[in-house]
Amino acid sequence: MLSFLGYAMRRALRNMKGNLFPNLTTIAIIGISLLIFSSFSLVAFNLTSLLRIWEEKFEVIAYLKRGVSLSEVESILAQIRKLDGVETVNYISPFDAMAFMEERLGAQKKLLEGIQPAVLPPSIEIRLKKDYWGQTKIGEVISYLKQVSQIEEIQYGQEWIETFSVLVHLVRLTQWILGGLLLAAIIFIVSNTLQLTIASRKEEIEAMQMMGAHPAFIQIPFYMEGLIQGLLGAGMAIGLLFLLYQVIVATITPLLKGWIAGIPILFLPWETITWVLLGGVILSLFGSFVASMRFLRYSR
């Protein structure tokens, strides 16, 4: 069995060497198709993890009017804690707010020199239980906060998160629609390249059939050719995507530092990489199977 697989592999490599240009073109096309698909996966993956982080951090911030006494703050905090769905409530004094900003600005905290903490309004951070992140439930909390006279402004990113969530779904949808088309293209291209290989090996195939070679003996080298094409194409896609990712991390991340606030841009997880490689191999194998069914059968 092993010697047969070795023989089939040698024949597959010889076939590929004999049809080098069509094979390289096929590998490149598989690579580019899977690169497009996995790029969308990477974008969707990062947007999803970003959304998850934001969801984890989701909170309502109520800015208090200046001059509110601590006893008033205590009373407001106690009232908010009693509200249905509230998980945690934290009071952020102007000093806390200043410390937070200094931490976020890091080396650039000098920008805050000369600014007194008193210019920053005190605020209350309210984190809701996950079940209360829906528009209706939040609405109930917000309407209570609006009735509190000591509160000047209320901020919450719920609408923004919902819009962002729709964007993530759109990216995922595009990924699968485009992916479907590209995957069909891979099957078609591999099948056609193998038809070229089969045509160029027609003499050999006919001789094998004449001598009574087992159909698997004739077909397996072509399956292996498809498998190698798929694996190299998928490997190329992952390799190129990783390079692209490195370029993005090196060039774009510093520009977005303030905006994405230290949230890392991630590369595809191992499971997705395995699926892309496996997908490339399976599709190419399917393409070679289609070609062999059409052209490698013992005809009568």
Binding site: Q209, M210, P215, Y298
Partner: peptide, 13 residues
């Protein structure tokens, strides 16, 4: 009938 190869294996053509 599809096993033409079985037939040809024992033949010299």
């Amino acid at each position: 009938f599809k096993k033409v190869y079985q037939l040809r294996k024992m033949m010299g053509i």
